[in-house]
Amino acid sequence: MAAPPRADSLALLDRLMAALQAKGVVTPAEIAERQANTDKASPETGARMVAKAWTDPAYRALLLSDGKAAAEAMGVSMAGAPPLGVLENTPTRHHLVVCTLCSCYPRAVLGYPPNWYKSFAYRSRAVREPRAVLAEWGLNLSDSVEIRVVDSTADYRWMVLPMRPAGTEGWEEARLAALVTRDSLVGVAVPAAA
């Protein structure tokens, strides 16, 4: 598990915050407000977008052509957020998102990136041996499926549009959304009807 911050890091944060406050640059209230806002973002947003795309062809087209507008259509404020690209899985293509250089992640629609996404092992291995990484996590894709690793290196943030599982015909959006896990929006899992 991720180690707790070192004492010298806690002290550095205290010194920096004190200095910034003394200079009138930031206030604790601003930090608290921003933190509360950030805490609200969650993968439920991405899951709702996917479920809507599964049931509404027009929304699906919007999602694939302009992820940011599709998020806004769900009531998510994307002001100042990077462009959101959405990658469509098909029976012959599976997308897996990684950021080898840092940890770029579609936070507006998925929330904070999990620790494993930021880990050195994921950042180095996903791009080179995606099948081994996926297999370790229990996802064994057929050899007939192209695995397309998406290295998130620049200005976009990427989310996967997984395939709708068989056996979900006629389901309502909310029931479908409950199948869409955060992992399936990154590409380390696929949704399944329980």
Partner: peptide, 18 residues
């Protein structure tokens, strides 16, 4: 610039959800 580097080749991706 970690893509594919050997250092973590044998390190499992830990399921850390904290």
């Amino acid at each position: 610039d970690m893509g594919g580097i050997a250092r973590f080749h044998c390190t499992p991706v830990e399921h850390d959800e904290a």
